[in-house]
């Protein structure tokens, strides 16, 4: 069973020095994530949600313990190897969208494919498909500044899924969106999860997101307090 994990953490510890003191953002976390999971990591601010996602996304390294992503130990990766892992296998969705402001929607979504060295035709085809998923084909030539928050987040989702990564890490993806936009975005992500079998991991304390996830991991003070399977109904998802 262990071998089916895409992501596995073992006694994962992350300590941040704060002045003279040391803060354990993650304290001996043991978790496993399988393919096509739709999981939320929840907990109050400072509980270690973002730190966990950063380590899984190879943006950070653990202080102790191990994080294995797609068979690669994050702590052993060089800068270049970590960048390659992110480039090929991990998509990120951020709270503040993090779109590149001077690029159009098309170019923002195309960006990860450029890094993968795909041909112009391939890129065009994939970007178009990704924009169809998020229903933004007609805004392909717009700049992020010309879009609403919901549209920007949909562009970010398209950018994350365009290369069909094995894992998508979404850090508070709905925090800057209203209820309707949040619902639409989550629905889109759920569809993509089903269609592409991509593993989605959310860091969130947004109730709207929690209604959608199928597994909820609760972190408190860097420790896994609860790990439960969820089975929300359609009505529950919509908050009815």
């Amino acid at each position: 069973m262990e071998n089916s994990f895409l992501i596995k953490t073992k006694e994962l510890v992350k300590i941040y020095p704060i002045g003279w003191k040391k803060l354990a953002a993650l304290d001996h976390v043991n978790l496993g994530f399988e393919k096509a999971e739709f999981t939320g990591v929840v907990g109050p601010s400072g509980s270690g949600k973002t730190t966990l996602l950063n380590i899984i996304g190879s943006l950070d390294v653990p202080t102790a313990g191990s994080a294995e992503v797609l068979g690669k130990k994050v702590e052993d990766l060089s800068n270049r190897q970590a960048a390659a892992l992110r480039n090929h296998s991990i998509g990120f969705i951020f709270q503040t969208f993090n779109l590149l402001p001077v690029y159009t929607v098309f170019e923002n979504v195309e960006f990860p494919l450029l890094l993968l060295g795909l041909s112009a035709d391939e890129r065009k085809q994939k970007v178009r498909k990704a924009l169809e998923w998020v229903d933004l084909v007609d805004r392909a030539k717009s700049k992020p500044a010309q879009l609403s928050g919901g549209q920007c987040q949909r562009v970010a989702i398209a950018r994350a899924v365009v290369k069909k990564p094995a894992i998508i890490l979404a850090d508070e993806p709905t925090a800057n969106l209203d209820a309707e936009n949040s619902h639409n975005i989550l629905q889109t992500m759920e569809e993509l999860n089903r269609e592409l079998k991509t593993t989605f991991i959310f860091a969130t304390h947004d109730e709207k997101v929690i209604r959608y996830i199928r597994r909820k991991i609760t972190l408190v003070d860097g420790k896994v307090a609860k790990d439960e399977v969820m089975n929300p109904t359609k009505a529950e998802r919509k908050g009815q």
């Binding site: 800068n79 270049r80 960048a83 992110r86 090929h88 993090n98 960006f111």
Partner: peptide, 16 residues
């Protein structure tokens, strides 16, 4: 800086 972080998250190395 945010843009740099995004570039790194998308697969850019620091050198790039």
């Amino acid at each position: 800086r945010k843009e740099m972080g995004t570039l790194m998250a998308l697969g850019f190395t620091r050198v790039k």
